[in-house]
């Protein structure tokens, strides 16, 4: 079976759980930015957790399937239309062969996920079907006119699933390795400040405007390895939260690290949205993740 792409909106990519383990060769991990939403979409259509889905940015994706199939749309919530008729968000829907599936502009959030039973079956690169938008490792970005292979459906879709609860409130911060490059207690300073998401944010990083952090050390930091969620502070003093396509090494000091459980929220913040931080409790860090 194949999926014919008629429109791809601002940016649509194939994503799975990414390709960790290649950072030492300069390869970003990539993977779905809102991983819990991608996981939910896969569960809804009966796919294994590592199946590839489509990640689309602010809607605008339109596809037709060459055969009847189960689909599910999760993540940023907006209109889901099949041949112009509204369908549900975050539930398994039957897409008839030849019917047009369209994702409208979400009311809030940024990234939506389309899972198709069987998974997007493009050729994996270094063990993953994810597209990294920093160095473009992986399948090419999805453009109008693309024809994507779909795998064999593994089984019946899940009858029900529980959408995650929203988690309002601040993003949790752990101390980073280079907090001593900044005046006072920079993590505490971040927890007292309000930031705004900047337009230039993307899959590489969430860029924040706000009170700049004051550096107490001059000179350059030799390039060092970077982690997912690292809060890097360039000379402007404005923090950047590293997301899935972040460079594997960087030369600006990392003041803090966003808790892994809050990274999906970074994927759904829009330019202009307000961001606040709080100090993560070490106990929360030790709790098992979903």
């Amino acid at each position: 079976m194949r999926l014919h792409v008629l429109a791809a909106g601002h940016l649509t990519t194939v994503q799975d759980r990414g390709r960790p383990g290649w950072a030492h060769l300069g390869v970003p991990r990539a993977g779905a930015l809102d991983a819990p939403a991608a996981d939910l979409a896969n569960r809804l259509v009966g796919n294994p957790a590592d199946a590839a889905v489509l990640e689309t940015t602010l809607g605008g994706l339109a596809v037709r399937a060459s055969a009847d199939c189960w689909v599910a749309v999760t993540g940023a919530e907006g209109p889901v239309l099949v041949d112009g008729r509204p369908r549900g968000h975050a539930r398994a829907e039957r897409l008839p062969a030849g019917a047009l599936l369209e994702l409208g502009t979400p009311r809030r959030g940024v990234r939506s996920y389309l899972a198709v039973a069987g998974g997007i079956a493009v050729e994996p690169v270094l063990g993953s079907r994810s597209t990294d938008t920093l160095a473009w490792v992986g399948p090419p970005r999805v453009e109008a006119g693309a024809v994507l292979p779909v795998g064999l459906p593994p089984g019946p879709p899940a009858a029900l699933d529980t959408p995650r609860p929203g988690r309002p409130g601040p993003l949790r911060l752990h101390p980073g390795p280079r907090a001593d490059w900044f005046a006072g207690d920079p993590v505490a300073a971040m927890c007292h400040a309000a930031y705004t998401v900047e337009e230039a944010s993307n899959r590489v990083g969430l860029r924040l405007a706000g009170p700049p952090l004051e550096r107490v050390r001059s000179g350059e930091l030799p390039s060092e390895g970077m982690v997912l969620g690292a809060v890097q502070v360039p000379p402007s003093g404005r923090p950047v939260v590293f997301l899935a396509d972040h460079p594997v090494t960087g030369g600006y000091p990392v003041v803090a690290v966003v808790d892994a459980g809050d990274l999906w929220r970074c994927a759904q913040l829009r330019p202009g949205d307000e961001v606040r931080f709080s100090l993560a409790r070490p106990a929360a860090a030790a709790a098992p993740t979903r």
């Binding site: 060092e224 690292a230 803090a256 690290v257 966003v258 808790d259 993560a280």
Partner: peptide
């Protein structure tokens, strides 16, 4: 420490 699951 670099957050809860990495060290430099």
């Amino acid at each position: 420490p670099v957050g809860p699951s990495a060290v430099l």
